[in-house]
């Protein structure tokens, strides 16, 4: 069982790394979104520094949403998903493997790219560790909540946009706690807020680890009949 589980994750990673797999696209998108911000609101360094954590988090949310339709779509088209649903591995575990694959191919690279973009947005270097830690804790929640939207819209024509619409409200707690964890590390926030928001963020992630696979598996069963 565990062997099959890891085989699924490795398969998704290989598919993403392959030419045409679109593995690097999320990071590129992240970069473009962040580069668009100073062009939109002006290059004033102090203003950019103030909005940098929020900007990076919003960009992370968007990159995560835009890659959702990749989760099940190809496997649904070629029938692999039907086989996986009938296989011996519970569908919940299959979904969890997919979510971990999504985190490893979109969430994790973005967390690693975040400091570079932080520098470009003039973010206080002292806030980098908190920002990265918060992203590392919060990004799995984005993947595990995202699979719900992907599962609900599998087989729906142009389901990617719908999936984003369904999932975005569920992302908001992650955004709120994630941004405040990073901002609290900057000056002017009462002590303890950073730790508290990190804990709350971790709680949200833990909840999503449970409801994500269960709900997404139920959605897939409804859609695969």
């Amino acid at each position: 069982m565990t062997h099959a589980f890891f085989a699924l994750i490795v398969r998704d990673l290989r598919l993403a790394a392959r030419i045409g797999g679109g593995g690097g696209m999320a990071v590129f998108f992240f970069l473009v979104v962040v580069a668009a911000v100073p062009l939109g609101i002006g290059p004033a360094p102090d203003l950019l520094a103030r909005i940098a954590p929020g900007m990076l988090w919003v960009a992370l949310l968007l990159s995560s949403l835009l890659t959702l339709d990749r989760l099940f779509h190809a496997d649904y088209e070629d029938g692999t998903l039907d086989l996986l649903a009938m296989g011996r591995v519970p569908l919940e575990l299959v979904v969890a493997a997919k979510a971990i694959g999504h985190f490893l191919t979109t969430g994790l690279p973005l967390v690693i790219a975040a400091p570079l973009l932080g520098l470009m947005l003039n973010l206080d270097v002292a806030a980098f560790p908190a920002l990265m830690l918060a992203m590392l804790v919060g990004a799995p929640a984005l993947s595990f909540l995202g699979v719900i939207g992907a599962g609900l819209t599998v087989g729906v024509r142009r389901g990617g946009l719908l999936a984003s619409l369904l999932v975005l409200p569920f992302y908001l707690p992650v955004l709120i706690f994630g941004v405040s964890a990073a901002r609290a590390a900057m000056a002017g926030f009462p002590a303890g807020v950073a730790g508290q928001s990190l804990l709350l963020l971790a709680a949200v992630t833990l909840v999503s680890l449970v409801i994500g696979p269960v709900a997404a598996a139920a959605a897939l069963r409804a859609n695969l009949r």
């Binding site: 719900i148 609900l152 369904l166 409200p169 959605a219 409804a222």
Partner: peptide, 14 residues
């Protein structure tokens, strides 16, 4: 109906 029901319940938890 099934998909919508799943979504409504996830929403209720959230």
């Amino acid at each position: 109906a099934r998909a919508a029901a799943v979504l409504a319940l996830v929403g209720a938890i959230n």
